[in-house]
């Protein structure tokens, strides 16, 4: 089964294709288009990409699994990605991670039962001077401390 996106998605893909001399180069952008809509890249998206770009589905899957940002499983509405790499760790990222686990009642790599939050450790977010840092969608939180965690989670919960 192939994914059947809205026409505006197909139009976006057509525009993206113009940027490259080879259709296959649109593989990552196409997967992003789908993930922006669905929150992850299910099997029918792989079929869609392979049909659109004229490449075998296995190749699309090989690409999708290579890159960590493509979610192979559904994630929570808020995907909390905390950097625990060196500069952030030096400044207390592990304590922040534990505070997040406690506040959410889950362990890292898990999703809350209400489907609101998924917690992941990620590698350096390129804002090392302002660590510990956490990315949630397009928002980045910097200079985190365990004390700041409850308010951040409460605010996201309130937004719903």
């Amino acid at each position: 089964m192939t994914w059947n996106p809205a026409p505006r998605i197909e139009e976006k893909l057509e525009k993206i294709l113009k940027a490259y001399p080879d259709k296959r180069a649109a593989c990552l952008p196409a997967l992003f288009l789908a993930q922006d809509e669905l929150g992850w890249v299910p099997d029918d998206v792989m079929v869609w990409v392979s049909e659109k770009l004229g490449m075998p589905k296995s190749q699309v899957e090989g690409v999708a699994t290579f890159y960590t940002m493509f979610n192979k499983k559904q994630v929570g509405k808020y995907h909390l990605e905390l950097c625990t790499n060196i500069s952030c760790s030096l400044c207390g990222a592990e304590q922040v991670l534990h505070a997040l686990e406690d506040e959410l009642g889950i362990k890292v790599k898990q999703t809350t039962e209400d489907g609101m939050f998924t917690l992941h450790e990620v590698e350096c977010l390129a804002t090392c001077g302002m660590g510990p840092a956490m990315q949630v969608g397009e928002v980045i939180y910097e200079e985190l401390t365990p004390e700041k965690v409850p308010a951040i989670i409460a605010e996201l919960r309130k937004k719903g």
Binding site: I86, S87, C124, A126, T127
Partner: peptide
């Protein structure tokens, strides 16, 4: 692709 841990200038 700035990803080398510690590096935050290109962003």
């Amino acid at each position: 692709d700035e990803g080398e841990p510690g590096t935050f200038k290109d962003r």
